[in-house]
Design a protein around this nucleic acid. Structure first.
Lengths: 326, 326
DNA sequence: CTGTTAGCGCATTCAT
DNA sequence: ATGAATGCGCTAACAG
């Protein structure tokens, strides 16, 4: 049995190879009679066109993406959105897991570019200067999914203003009657998103006016234990504290746990708000009040921005999810 | 500026294109002098070899994978394991999100095969007969990540015995003194893993002997609400019920929530065990006793099995995670 | 609508 | 250790 290629399919159907090619990728350019005959042969032979060879001449249909090492929580939803949008448009997703160092990022992007992607989606701003140059030289469109405030993107951006979201949640808590709002952050160093959340919180406290107690902050590792610890620290620092706003649901869940251990009613004795709306947020007891960002939409929109060539900066927005914990 | 290719790099370095190719992929075959000179030119020009063209002649370095639509929880960890192992071995991960229908599965696999993958990782047994034929014809190695009991794989399998895991958990609960063990399942239709969990539970109840009360089961949708509902149903059916074993953590979390609502102490009034060890499992109150499977290892091992051509069936094993809820 | 010709950029094969 | 010739399988460009 000859290795199955278009040439062989064409021979069996009694046409030229290019006609098979057209029947497969632009059916409308081939007469119905030929098309039917060709498709029958293709189906019968189980022929699968070689996209590698196809990409040699026409533009490829691969979209490369670099995702952070922790594919937990939100990132997975983004990937889902990307995969869906790719499938819907006939593209394939080439996934690289990146570390956070600029060198690793550059390496990941280089590996992706080698596959002649139709575009790149990066889950943050590209940091490495070298990577930016490579991308520019390759002339490949890029979408950065990130904080959209105060940055100049390489090309297109899809994201949310973490600043506005954190600001809104802080105001929301104040409106609900909490007087002493503590803020728990994970280390903001080198992470725009986290930094903007903190900045948003501070701005809100300022906007609440001089009558309102000054802010109260602590920075802890991004683990439930970190959240528990933060609660202890802040409650000790200010006994009047009545709510803590955690810059991630993971922290918030840890804080709620700590309340259970102390037998503190949530939100009676201490209220807790999170950020992210993880799956768990709605499922723990009490259900978590948090900030929700539609990560799946971010992924989908990123791919669409790439494919349809929209050059705008897309803000997918956020939502304050009011549940029981605050 | 000429489009940068090996030809141009070769010209600048004063060598033949093939020498550049060798310097890049088999450095040991090129003299140090030339290699150094070539690498300098490559770096200076920011040259990235075209892997698409490269794959035309040599075998590609892409591994295709089909993942279920819900990239939540465990699947994300598997993908992480795969991505890591791919990166460590110089491969790229081509990700397709598959639906569960055989037709969609076939389509996904076809799309992947078009890219001449070095191998395929499928997150279940391939169901579609057509897909199996395509894979066979393409001669591509496949790893199925799945239930490993009682199935004949296409090629290689990496997985765990859901049967043994569920059996072990049931025995574990009995050993801890629970007398009436209910089992909550999600619909097992068409899903080996879920079916084997139920079979394992039943076998354990049988093994516990005639003195032990007969099993008590219910099947509900895989949502926290399903778990809450299951608790209500089983508790009504048998007031002596003292523990429920849920075939997924999602259900278990819902059941625990329902206990909170009823003011039932967990595990005092009702104990709950889960399956899967989601992130949340350790974080809810009380922390969930569950079955843990190292999904990340599954992903990693799958890729390694593919690359290193191991043809065995790998059982990554499981672990009973004893926490507070049961 | 269909076919002919040519070549995408690299790595294999065979020489030197 | 280096190079020349050749073609991987497909599709763009140009005919007919």
């Amino acid at each position: 049995m000859t290795k199955l290629g278009m040439r062989e399919i064409a021979r069996r159907a009694g046409v030229a190879p290019i006609t098979v090619s057209r029947a497969l990728s632009r059916p409308e350019q081939v007469s119905e009679a030929l098309r039917t005959r060709i498709m029958a042969v293709v189906a019968e032979a189980g022929f699968i066109p070689d996209r590698v060879a196809g990409s040699m001449r026409s533009s490829g249909r691969i979209i490369g993406t670099v995702v952070p090492p922790l594919i937990n929580s939100g990132i997975a939803e983004q990937v889902k959105g990307m995969a869906d949008a790719c499938a819907a448009n006939g593209y394939q997703l080439l996934l690289m897991q990146g570390e956070f160092s600029p060198a690793a990022e550059d390496q990941a992007i280089t590996a992706l570019l080698g596959w002649r992607p139709a575009g790149l989606v990066i889950q943050a701003f590209v940091q490495s200067r070298q990577a930016r140059e490579r991308i520019a030289r390759a002339g490949v469109p890029v979408v950065e999914i990130s904080e959209i405030r105060g940055r100049r993107p390489i090309d297109r951006v899809v994201g949310v203003s973490n600043y506005r979201a954190a600001h809104a949640m802080t105001m929301h808590l104040a409106r609900r009657g909490y007087r002493r709002i503590g803020f728990v952050s994970t280390p903001v160093h080198g992470n725009d998103r986290l930094r903007q959340r903190r900045v948003g919180y501070r701005a809100a406290i300022r906007d609440l006016g001089p009558d309102y107690p000054a802010g109260l902050e602590v920075e802890v590792p991004i683990t439930p234990q970190g959240g528990a610890e933060a609660l202890s620290i802040l409650a000790r620092r200010d006994p009047a504290l009545d709510v803590i706003f955690c810059s991630s649901d993971t922290l918030a869940i840890g804080a709620v746990q700590e309340c259970h251990r102390r037998n503190w009613a949530v939100p009676g004795r201490m209220a807790v708000a999170g950020y992210g709306d993880l799956d768990l947020a709605a499922q723990i007891y009490p259900a978590l009040t948090t900030v929700r960002v539609d990560r799946e939409a971010m992924g989908r929109v990123a791919i669409e921005a790439l494919i349809h060539g929209r050059r705008e900066m897309v803000d997918v927005g956020f939502e304050i999810v009011q549940r029981e914990s605050a």
